[in-house]
Design a binder for these strands. Structure first.
Lengths: 277, 277
DNA sequence: TCGAGGGTTGACGCTGCGTCAAGGTCAAGC
DNA sequence: GCTTGACCTTGACGCAGCGTCAACCCTCGA
C-alpha cells in the first residue's frame, strides 16, 4: 500500500494535487490506516495517471470524469470541442501578441496610426511636448468615441497644419501654456499673445464656416454630452482655455471642441474695457 | 462630470472592471458627489482607455502602472518580456493540442504507441476485453515508472505473442477470469485450466531463464517496492492470481511481475494432496 | 408618489492548485 | 526514552480578473 507521497511520486504529481482531486471528487478517497494516513493501491496510481494525462492535455478537471467514462463517440466529440477551445485561446493570445507589437512606440498607446502620424507632424512643426501630450489625450478620447471618423478628422487636421497660421497658433499656445497662466502672473506679453490667438482662431473659424466645415462637424459630432466632456477636459488642463473662450465669445464664437457662432457677439468684456479683436 | 456607468461606457469596459481597478489602486478613486456617487472627469476616461489598451494586449494588471509610467527603453524591454510570456503560453496550448490530438483512440490514454500496438495484437490473438484492459492498466503503471524501457519491453512481449503457447496461455487465463473464480465455484474444469496455465508458465520461464532474460529483467527492474505494487495490482484484480502463484511455487517459481526461481520447489500443497504439475 | 434605472458596498465564485500554519506519526540514531 | 527529520493530517488564504448576486440608496420622469 502507498502513502499519498508515494502515490504522487509514481504518478508524477504533487500531493496537493491529489488532495485537490479528492476534494472535487475526481479521485475517490482511499481507506485510512490506523494513524489516519491515506492508503492507496496500484489502481489509484493508474487512475491518477489517466486523470493527469487528460488534465495535461488541457481538459478542465470538471470534465475529466465524463471523458474517462465516455464511449468512443462522446470522447471524440468532447476532444473536438476541447481542441476548438484551445484553438480559440491560442487565437486570443496571438491577438494579444499583435496588440503588444503595435505598442512599440510611445504615442501609439491606444491611438490609431493616423493620429500618431498627425502627432509626429505636430511635433515636427515645433509644438511643445506638453501640447502634443494634451492633443494625444484628446484624440484618445475622440478615437474611443468615433473610431471610424478618425481618418477623416486626421486628414483635416493634417491639412490645417500646412497653414502657417495654424503653426503660429500652436506656437503661441505652447508659449502661453509654458508660462503658467496663474492668476497673478498674467503679463502684458501674455495678453498680447492671447489676443493674437483669439484673432487667429476667429479668422480661421470664419473660413471654416464659409467652407461649410463647421456645419458638417456639428452634424457629425451630435453628442452634446461628449462635447461637454471634451470642453471640460480642455479647460481642466489649463486656465488659459477659459480666458480664450471669453475672448472668442467677444469675437462671436462659442464652444471649444465644436465651435459655433453666437447670434450676437458678447461685448460684456468690451464694456469692461477690453478691446474686442 | 461622469458617473461610473458613463465612464465605463466611454471606455468600453464594465463598471465592475472600473471598481476593480480602484480596488487594486490602478485607477485613483475619484471624488464623490453629495449622494456618494463617484464623479469622474475626462482624464479618467483617458487613463482608463490606456489601462485597457495594455490589459487587452495581455499585460498583467499588476504591471500596467509600471508600463504607463515607463520611459521608452523600459517600455520596450517590458513589452519584449510580455511578448515572450505570451509566446510561451501559446507554446503550452499548442502542446495541449498535440496531446489532445493523440488521445483520439481509446487505449492510447496515457500509453505510448508501442503499447497500443501490442494491445491491439493481443486483442487480435483472441484475448478477452477484460484481459486487454488489465494489461493496459499494468502497462500504464510500467510506462510511468520506466518510460524509456517501454520499446524494449514491447518488442519482447510482441515476440512472445508469436509463440502459440503464449496465445494459449492468454486464452486460458481469459476463460478462467471470465468464470468468476469465487471460492465456492471452482470447478474441475477450472482446476484443469489452472494446471495447464501453471505448466505453460513454468515451461516458458525455464526457457527465459536459459536465454538469460530473467536475469537481465531482474537487473533492469531493480525497484522492489514497485514490483510489489505491480504484484498487488495483479492479485487485487483477480483471485486466480494467488492460486496460480501457489501452483507456480510448487513448480519452483516465485513472484509474478518479475519471476524468480526458488531454491527448492515448494511441496506444501503436494503434501496436502494436490499433485504437482 | 411611484417605478425604473441609475448608483453604493460586500461577498462569493471561478481554475487548479501553491503555500503557510499548526500540528500528529514514524523510523532511525543517540 | 528522547530527539530529529521526514512523513502525514486538516484548514484556510492567495492568485487574476473580474461576473454575479444581495441588499440597499438616489434620482428622475410620468
Amino acid at each position: 500500500m502507498l502513502t499519498i507521497g508515494q502515490l504522487a511520486a509514481y504518478a508524477g504529481v504533487t500531493q496537493r494535487a491529489v488532495r485537490h482531486y479528492h476534494q472535487i471528487g475526481l479521485l475517490p478517497e482511499p481507506q485510512r490506516d490506523s494513524s489516519g494516513y491515506r492508503s492507496y493501491g496500484a489502481q489509484a496510481v493508474v487512475d491518477l495517471i489517466r486523470i493527469r494525462t487528460l488534465a495535461e492535455a488541457g481538459v478542465p478537471l470538471a470534465r475529466v470524469q465524463d471523458l474517462l467514462e465516455a464511449g468512443e463517440e462522446e470522447f471524440a466529440a468532447a476532444v473536438a470541442e476541447i481542441d476548438s477551445r484551445l484553438r480559440a485561446e491560442i487565437r486570443d493570445l496571438q491577438e494579444h501578441r499583435r496588440r503588444i507589437a503595435r505598442l512599440a512606440g510611445g504615442d501609439s498607446l491606444a491611438l490609431p496610426a493616423e493620429v500618431v502620424a498627425y502627432l509626429d507632424k505636430l511635433r515636427a512643426s515645433g509644438a511643445s511636448e506638453a501640447m502634443v501630450a494634451g492633443e494625444r489625450d484628446a484624440w484618445i478620447l475622440i478615437a474611443a468615441r468615433w473610431p471610424e471618423k478618425i481618418p477623416a478628422f486626421m486628414a483635416d487636421k493634417s491639412a490645417q497644419l500646412d497653414d502657417p497660421r495654424t503653426v503660429r497658433l500652436y506656437l503661441l499656445i505652447g508659449e502661453l501654456a509654458a508660462g503658467g497662466m496663474d492668476e497673478a502672473e498674467v503679463t502684458d506679453l501674455d495678453e498680447d499673445r492671447l489676443g493674437e490667438v483669439a484673432d487667429l482662431m476667429a479668422e480661421m473659424n470664419e473660413e471654416s464656416a464659409q467652407r461649410g466645415d463647421l456645419e458638417r462637424q456639428s452634424e457629425e459630432m451630435g453628442d452634446d454630452a461628449f462635447i461637454a466632456l471634451m470642453d471640460s477636459f480642455a479647460s481642466d488642463s489649463h486656465p488659459m482655455v477659459q480666458r480664450l473662450q471669453e475672448l472668442l465669445a467677444e469675437r462671436g464664437w462659442t464652444g471649444w471642441s465644436r465651435m459655433e457662432r453666437t447670434t450676437s457677439p458678447d461685448t460684456s468684456r468690451a464694456a469692461r474695457g477690453v478691446a474686442p479683436g
